[in-house]
Computed example of a mutant assay.
Amino acid sequence: MSLEMARTQGRQLFRPVEVAQMSGLSRAFIYRLIEKGALKSVRIGSAVRISADEVTRLLTEGIPAQD
């Protein structure tokens, strides 16, 4: 599922596995980005969700380089 398709369906939050599929990155790598603070997420109960705006940022700007 593409981000644009999801947005047209009214989706604003995505599971890490969905972000991994959209970005071509692994689910584990998405979780590492969340743990490092490089990808912002929210917790709803025990569920981790990533906003559509944050997914767009990841896909357009990439991942900040670590020194």
Rank of each mutant, 00 (worst) to 15 (best):
M1A: 13
M1K: 15
M1P: 12
S2L: 12
S2I: 05
E4V: 04
E4K: 03
E4T: 02
E4M: 01
A6V: 08
R7I: 05
R7W: 04
R7K: 15
T8G: 06
T8W: 10
T8M: 12
Q9V: 08
Q9S: 11
Q9D: 13
G10H: 07
G10I: 02
G10S: 10
G10R: 08
R11Y: 13
R11M: 14
R11E: 15
R11K: 14
Q12V: 14
Q12W: 11
Q12H: 13
L13T: 12
L13F: 15
F14S: 09
F14L: 10
R15V: 01
R15H: 10
P16G: 12
V17L: 12
E18S: 10
V19M: 11
V19R: 06
V19D: 06
A20G: 13
Q21A: 15
Q21F: 03
M22A: 05
S23H: 04
S23P: 02
G24A: 05
L25D: 04
L25N: 07
R27A: 09
A28Q: 06
F29S: 03
F29M: 02
Y31K: 04
Y31R: 07
Y31N: 07
Y31E: 04
R32I: 02
L33S: 03
L33V: 04
I34R: 00
E35N: 11
E35W: 01
K36V: 11
K36P: 03
K36S: 15
G37P: 13
G37Y: 11
A38C: 10
A38M: 13
L39S: 03
L39K: 02
L39D: 03
K40G: 04
K40R: 09
R43V: 03
R43F: 04
R43H: 09
I44G: 00
G45R: 06
S46H: 06
S46Q: 08
S46Y: 02
S46P: 00
A47G: 01
A47R: 13
V48M: 09
V48N: 09
I50G: 05
I50L: 04
S51Y: 08
S51I: 01
A52P: 02
A52Q: 01
D53Q: 14
D53P: 00
D53C: 06
E54F: 00
E54K: 02
E54R: 00
V55I: 09
V55A: 06
V55G: 09
T56Q: 15
T56I: 11
T56E: 15
T56Y: 13
R57H: 01
R57I: 00
L58D: 13
L58N: 14
L58K: 14
L59P: 07
L59T: 09
T60E: 14
T60K: 12
T60A: 06
E61T: 05
E61W: 03
G62H: 02
G62Y: 07
I63F: 03
P64Y: 01
P64E: 02
A65T: 06
Q66G: 13
D67Q: 10
D67W: 10
